[in-house]
Amino acid sequence: MGTVNRVAVVTGGSRGIGRAVAERLARDGQVVVVVYASNDTEAKATVDAIEAAGGRASAVRADVADEAAIAALFDATEREFGGVDVVVNAAGIMTLTPVAEMDLDALDRMHRTNVRGAFVVAREAARRLRPGGALVNFSTSQTRLLSPTYAAYAASKAAVEALTPVLAKEMRGRDVTVNAVAPGPTATDLFFNGKDEAAIERFAKLNPMERLGTPDDIAEVVSALAGPARWVNGQTVYVNGGVA
C-alpha cells in the first residue's frame, strides 16, 4: 500500500497568506482543500498553481461562520480523501477605524468571520481531526502592538488567542495540537488596503529586519505547526521579524 497523504483544510486559502499556506502544505505533500468566501477565479488559480507544481487540491466555496456549510465541507473532504489531518483557520477580514468612529455593522461583520467563524471551524476540527492532526488558528501581532484604529480587529483576534490554548487542553488524549500564528505587518492586499506609502514604510521599519513579512514567511511557520512541530501546543507564535 502506498503512502497515505495527510489532508489539510485551509480556510481563506484563495489569496494572501492563506494561499501561500495552501501552496506550501501542498509542497509538503499534503492534499489541500482550499476554502474560499466568494472569488471563484482566485480559488481556481490557487488549485491550478498547486496542481501545476505536482500537488493535489480542490476548492470549496463556504462561509466559515455557517455551521451547516462547514459541516458539509468536512463531510465532503472525508468522503473524497478519507479524513482530515490539518485545519488552518486563515479566513479573516479587517476593518480599521478609531473606536469613536466604529460602524457597529462593520464590527458585527468582522466578528462574525473572525470570532464566530474561527469557533465554527475549530469546533468541526475538534470533532474530526485524526490522531497526529493539527489545528492552526490565525491571530495578529496587533494583539501586542495595539496600534490606533486596530481595536476592533485586535479584539476579534484576542478571542482566537484565548480559544487556542483552551481547545489544546480539551483535546487531551487525542494526539492533536492546537496553535495560533500571529503575523506582523505582511505584504498582502489586506495589509496594503487604505495605507499610503509613508504608513507602509513605517510598518516595515517596526521590526529589526526592516522589511514587511511575506506570505511565504508565515506559511513556513504554519508548515512546521501542521507537520513536524508536535511539541508546540496551545501556543500563539508571533511571526513578525522581531516586532516587540
Rank of each mutant, 00 (worst) to 15 (best):
V47C: 11
V47D: 12
D48E: 14
D48G: 09
A49E: 02
A49L: 01
A49V: 03
A49W: 03
A49N: 00
I50C: 12
I50F: 05
I50W: 05
A52P: 11
A53M: 00
A53E: 12
A53S: 13
G54M: 09
G54F: 12
G54D: 11
G55E: 01
G55T: 00
G55K: 12
R56P: 02
R56W: 02
A57H: 02
A57P: 09
S58P: 00
S58G: 12
S58K: 05
A59Y: 07
V60L: 01
R61G: 12
R61F: 07
A62S: 08
V64N: 14
V64I: 14
V64E: 14
A65R: 06
A65H: 04
A65V: 02
A65N: 02
D66N: 15
E67T: 15
E67H: 15
E67Y: 12
A68C: 00
A68F: 10
A69G: 05
A69F: 12
A69W: 07
A71K: 15
A71E: 13
A72L: 09
A72I: 00
L73S: 09
L73H: 07
L73C: 08
F74T: 09
F74Q: 04
F74L: 06
D75K: 03
D75H: 01
D75G: 07
A76H: 09
T77M: 04
T77G: 01
T77E: 02
E78T: 01
E78Y: 01
E78A: 06
E78W: 00
R79L: 01
R79K: 13
R79I: 00
E80N: 08
E80F: 05
